[in-house]
Amino acid sequence: MKKSTTLIFLFTFLLLGISVFSQDKNKFNNVDGVLAKIIPNNKLDFWVLAHNSYGKNKEVKISGTKKDYVPQFSGFSLRPGEDSFYYIVYSVGGKINYLTDINELKGFIGKVDNVEEAALSAVLDGYLIDEQFVDVAANYYTDATNYYLDLGKITSKECPYQKTHFTLTVNKATGVVSNIKDNGTYIEVYTKNCKNNPRLLKIEKKEEPKDEPKKQPIKKRR
């Protein structure tokens, strides 16, 4: 009986250990790395992922035998506030095409094949792979059935500017988001122009020093 109980305990402990280990979070180190993991929905002759940052063009990924193409001067942005954009060049049946509109990215990806494509699908729905806050808004873990994505979202552009982080549960087989957990605000920024800035309100409410009562002049006896 004692031996049986010990075996049950060890088995339970092992299962718990596997469960904890399976939830170790991996990081999306940068947007370039996520985009480079795209598996195009259609069979292509070649495709190139290019990143233009502050006027400088860089080829992030080349798949297949690249042919000459025309560098683009516009594209889709995945880094809000940064002067940069991405575009994709691809060839089907010898004809070169350019993907510069983010709305076209969904069709290019097609079925969700990996966790990076799951994250990009979420980005197309308004979420953010936040490279500045990787621990809270750019990481994931998986199990046999789902991807669990920790991503950010700009929830207010007014005063204050806010970002909130969420955990999205995405089914591996269908790519469907089955659950969204709100983890709260992780950044809140007030500018000098924010009338509701708590610091400014505190200064306004601070009591001004009271003036000392004026001394009455002493009347001299005649």
Rank of each mutant, 00 (worst) to 15 (best):
K181G: 01
N183V: 02
D24K: 10
D135W: 00
F13D: 00
A137I: 04
N193L: 11
L78T: 01
T5E: 15
P217C: 09
D113L: 06
K195G: 12
D211H: 08
G81A: 09
N139R: 08
F28K: 04
Y90T: 05
V60M: 08
E204M: 14
N26A: 12
S63N: 14
E158C: 02
L105V: 03
P40S: 08
D135Y: 03
E207F: 04
L200D: 12
V20E: 00
K215V: 12
K220P: 00
I62K: 13
K205F: 02
S74K: 15
G107H: 01
N30L: 04
I39P: 00
G75T: 08
D24I: 06
Y86C: 05
S121Y: 07
L120D: 02
D24V: 05
K195D: 15
T100H: 03
K172T: 06
Y147E: 02
C159H: 07
S156K: 07
K2R: 14
E188M: 11
K61N: 11
V92H: 04
S4E: 10
F13T: 11
N139V: 02
V70S: 15
I218L: 13
P71Y: 10
K61H: 08
S178G: 09
F46C: 11
K172D: 08
Y127R: 04
F166M: 08
K219D: 09
F46N: 13
L168I: 08
L105R: 03
Y141L: 05
S63D: 13
F76H: 09
N171R: 07
I129Q: 03
M1I: 08
E117H: 07
V134L: 15
E82V: 15
S121R: 10
L128C: 03
T191P: 12
K56Y: 09
M1L: 12
A173R: 07
V123F: 03
Y147D: 02
N146Q: 06
D150M: 12
I129V: 12
S53L: 11
K61V: 14
Q72E: 15
N57S: 13
